[in-house]
Design a protein around this nucleic acid. Structure first.
Lengths: 157, 157
DNA sequence: GCGAACCTACTCGGATATGGGATGTCCGAGTTCTCGTGG
DNA sequence: CCACGAGAACTCGGACATCCCATATCCGAGTAGGTTCGC
């Protein structure tokens, strides 16, 4: 199992957008340049965030992306869901229903294996939903206070 | 993000092995036939379980697979780790270290984004580790009491 | 009748094809700003 | 000097290649049990 690489890009991108402020629209190319990433692919990730309603996108000169909500109202779960989709990692194929002569009980609820897996995924989602962009932002600022100014400088240039 | 399909096969397979008992070795072909699955691929999953030490494998006539431990001592985490590997789903590529002129602080610990993601994955792992094969087995037996006998009948034939 | 050697059938194990999704790239649609021109 | 229109540059957005991993398959190594032959 492997999470898409774009998730890392998206989270860092959202953080940088948070530091840039909700007024300043930042082009995908500039966000990508900050980490020396291919701008077209970074653009793809930002498009996904836009479709999910996490960022606004404006075309044309002076355009770019900016956060659609306050960092307090964006959770890591939102970002992950925007990039990875909302489907569960474990997808029950109901192989139990393919037994030769099934032992009756047609409508016996959901597969118990599936339920166990979903319980675990719920714990994962809950933990992701408990972390907001603002939390993460605050932690980075405590750990490296010079980062916000550095980001703003590079994104404004 | 998507979990390997083999995980579902492996969990159901382990359950069936638990019902078959630790003495009776069941060939991969018979386990596969129970769910009408390609036997060669089921064999592959069982090999992974054997490498992880969850099942014993014996070749030759009368051979097959059997549980290496009591169902109480096998967690869903063990099965998932055996099939999917023990690597984290989120793999920090440390893109933050590729900024043009990094703002000093070389040894500033692990990436905070990575930490947040690992916290969520830990919750997922913890939940999986809390569920043993015995728990799952008991739940199935409560929900469909006729299943164990049905499985034993088909695996013995 | 008994023992041993051979032979067959069965099973796992790893090496080998194949397909789908993630990764990465490119070009077109639309918008905004700028510059030039005419009143 | 101001208004207007054409043009150019910039940006997103989606369509198009490419690559890698999960899926699926196949054949060989090894073992156990049965069988046959010799004593």
């Amino acid at each position: 199992m492997r999470m898409a690489e774009g998730v890392e890009w998206a989270v860092h991108g959202c953080l940088n957008l948070a530091w840039a402020g909700p007024e300043k629209a930042v082009p995908a190319a500039r966000l990508a340049a900050y980490y020396d990433l291919p701008s077209a692919y970074m653009n793809k990730q930002l498009q996904a965030l836009a479709r999910a309603g996490l960022v606004y996108s404006t075309p044309g000169p002076g355009g770019g992306f900016r956060l659609a909500r306050a960092p307090e109202d964006i959770t890591l779960m939102d970002v992950v869901a925007a990039i990875e989709g909302r489907e569960d990692a474990f997808r029950c194929k109901e192989i139990r229903e393919r037994v030769p002569d099934a032992p009756a009980s047609p409508g016996q609820g959901r597969c118990l294996v599936d339920q166990a897996m979903l319980r675990a995924e719920s714990a994962w989602r809950k933990e992701l939903a408990a972390q907001t962009l603002a939390d993460l932002k605050r932690r980075v600022e405590r750990s490296a206070p010079e980062v916000p100014a550095h980001v703003r400088r590079h994104l404004a240039a």
